[in-house]
Design a protein around this nucleic acid. Structure first.
Lengths: 148, 148
DNA sequence: TTATTTGCAAAAGTTTTGCACTGTA
DNA sequence: TACAGTGCAAAACTTTTGCAAATAA
């Protein structure tokens, strides 16, 4: 059975909130979608399965998922809000292609090491972090990528 | 005389755009303001000096400054757009306090080294990068920071 | 039964755009 | 003179909120 669903129910119970069919339906759909979609795109996917679920419920649920640690909210380049499913803790790092806008996450423990060194020096207590690297992915930089 | 003004004029000439008093006034004011202000805050400061300069001109000018390399646009935590004066190239890194929302930039060459190593492994051509570290600044973490 | 949640529509906030007028090159 | 830039107001988006009805605990 679904681990994320369990996490959601657990979070709801702890926070004294209610388990509703909408919240669980939105979570199930969210988990099947690709990462880095906008609220609008997620809401459209939800609406395709159940047109009675409103936009505001999608907004409210996504915020809830972030609080429950099930999703991460991003504001890359454009300022457009997008969401990513999140498993375990810690920070994450992203390669963002400035041409095709594809996002590729990666992890590297060295970044946390550098972070900790800097934070110690500046008396800052880190919680989480993210490194965003903007540039061209191999596909867009390749010889066949002359067009815009 | 002002280096940034020179950069702006150079950029305008290169792009076949016109040098206007509004653009230069907005740049001058922008350079005197603190970093990480919203468009609205910047526009308010501009309006205080010359109430005939409209909001849309501020938006258009800030975009221009980013293109000219004179400003960086950010979308931290909130998704709210803020701007920072930018000197030289490369990436920049930020400690963002999740309590008081203060932003403290820092630089560390090790981050670029890690970035290059990862990019080589993933065939990604980096252009610029930014590391955002969220947590508590010394002031907010200190013993006298129990209130919210 | 009681408090939370939902869906809708309206409101609020942010950014962009159309257009007539102004100003630069 | 020609064309880019400006200011204003309207439009386009995105996100939040108020409220009556529905629903979980």
């Amino acid at each position: 059975m679904n681990e994320a669903l369990r996490v959601l129910r657990e979070h709801l119970k702890r926070a004294g909130l209610k388990r509703t069919s909408q919240r669980e339906a939105i979570l199930r759909i969210f988990l099947e979608l690709p990462d880095f979609l906008s609220v609008d795109e997620i809401a459209r996917a939800v609406g395709a399965r159940d047109r009675r679920i409103g936009m505001s419920t999608v907004y409210r649920s996504l915020k809830l998922f972030v609080e429950a640690g099930l999703a991460r909210e991003h504001h890359f380049l454009t300022g457009r809000t997008t969401f990513e499913k999140s498993g375990g803790g810690g920070g994450r790092n992203y390669l963002i292609c400035t041409r095709c806008h594809r996002v590729q996450p990666f992890e590297d423990p060295l970044i946390e090491a550098v972070r900790d060194k800097v934070c110690r020096g500046l008396s800052f207590t880190p919680d989480f972090n993210r490194l965003e690297v903007y540039g061209l992915c191999s596909r867009c930089r390749g010889p066949a990528a002359e067009e815009d």
